[in-house]
Design a protein around this nucleic acid. Sequence first.
DNA 1: CTGTCACGATACCGATCGGTACTGTCACCG
DNA 2: CGGTGACAGTACCGATCGGTATCGTGACAG
Lengths: 193, 193
Amino acid sequence: MAAGVLPNPSATRARILETATALFYERGVHAVGVNEIAAAAGASKLSLYRYFPSKAELVRAMLTEHSDRIHAWLARRTAAARGPERVLAVFDVLTEWFAQPGYHGCAIVNGVTDTRADPEVAAIARTHLHRYLDLLEELLADADVADPAALARQLLVLIEGASVVVTIEGTIDAGADARKAAAVLVRLASAGS
Amino acid sequence: MAAGVLPNPSATRARILETATALFYERGVHAVGVNEIAAAAGASKLSLYRYFPSKAELVRAMLTEHSDRIHAWLARRTAAARGPERVLAVFDVLTEWFAQPGYHGCAIVNGVTDTRADPEVAAIARTHLHRYLDLLEELLADADVADPAALARQLLVLIEGASVVVTIEGTIDAGADARKAAAVLVRLASAGS
DNA sequence: CTGTCACGATACCGATCGGTACTGTCACCG
DNA sequence: CGGTGACAGTACCGATCGGTATCGTGACAG
């Protein structure tokens, strides 16, 4: 990126990105203008357009960085447990995430809905889901289930569904529901092998 | 396309609503203006604002009518089967829905994301999910499972999750994954009673 | 024929959008 | 010291937004 040629990486870029992440998530990509982002970040529009060629590129950078952060956090939080409990730890961490104040859906999924026409955003989201599958497959293989890939896909559906239902219902009940369903599916797959 | 069309009071409103439904779903609430809706519906802005006090009210009317249509369709399509197969018929119908060209997520869920700040839209979406739960509970009670309400909530998570994963992946695989998971959960709940 | 009514078309309003240009002011570095 | 570059602030651009007002027309009632 352009900051690479500079002797000192700028904190301004990070500040703009952080502010944009918060505002876009809170109100949506179309409902937040670049003027507001720059003002809230304590930056000028000139600085914003120095680091991001356009609003669309800012959105893409935001989603990419956010996906990285989520999966790093998820991998770290599930590293402790072992065996079948390790898979269910994913759902525990997710439910904890859903309970955070101001949670209203996965920022990546919301971003796809906000920018329906952007194929690059769609690709970022596909990669995001694929990372979920990679983690789940690894944890399921560790739990010695029969078909890790197939079960991982079912658990992914539970994860994304829980996020949506939690957001619409306004409670975290769906997180517990998804965990219960996952526990049944994992236990059955373990016993079958 | 104005040639020879007879003015019909209720038909104009329905035409605007239908056009708005298609455009909002395709590109998002914020990306479609009232000018475009009126033009595409072959109506004037005056007519649009005669039947809908504001764009926000148009969105709410669109989502309400759409939710009604989805659940009427779902109830009709699942009326044929009996027993446990009747529950799985919901997932068959849903997968069929996901396979429709141009499908990119549930319009209700997308509408909530588009209009994060509108509590009335949020209420419409909650009612929408509640109708899913009512249908699932009825079908599960018909299948004599132990705890229809609890299992219905898990299947709801699968339904919403499948919709999201199908949309992001661009394939209908997640529909089949959700059906498989649902089959396991229902079979286990039936055997347990 | 004449009034009424729903309608499409058009022009318009203030506000805001994404994006650009310009100015002044710091900090750092020779 | 003067020079350089990143920066905030601000004015500005054309376009488009949601929403309102005006006008002309065709269908129908009396």
